[in-house]
Simulated assay, not measured.
Amino acid sequence: MNPEDLQKLVTLKMPFGKHQGVLIADLPGNYLNWFAREGFPKGEIGRLLALMQEIDHNGLKPLLDPLRGPSRGPSR
Rank of each mutant, 00 (worst) to 15 (best):
S71M: 14
I24R: 00
G21R: 04
G43W: 03
A36V: 07
R76N: 15
E4V: 09
K13C: 08
I45D: 01
D5N: 11
P28S: 05
I24W: 00
P66V: 09
I45R: 02
Y31L: 03
L63R: 13
L49S: 01
G17T: 11
P41S: 04
N30T: 13
G17C: 10
F16L: 07
M1T: 09
L6M: 12
L51F: 08
R37P: 00
L27W: 03
R76A: 13
G46P: 03
R72G: 06
P15M: 08
G39Y: 09
N30W: 13
G43K: 05
P66R: 09
P28G: 03
N30Q: 11
Q7V: 05
S71T: 13
A50C: 10
N58H: 15
E4K: 12
R37W: 05
L27T: 01
L63M: 15
L27M: 09
G17N: 11
L48D: 01
G43V: 06
G29H: 03
K42A: 14
Y31V: 02
D5R: 05
M1D: 12
G46N: 08
G59Q: 11
G43M: 06
P74N: 14
K8C: 03
P70M: 13
P66I: 10
K61A: 14
K8R: 14
V10N: 01
K13P: 00
L32W: 03
G59W: 12
L67A: 06
S71N: 14
H57I: 05
P74W: 12
V22K: 06
A25W: 01
G39C: 08
R47G: 07
G29C: 05
G21M: 03
G17S: 09
V22E: 03
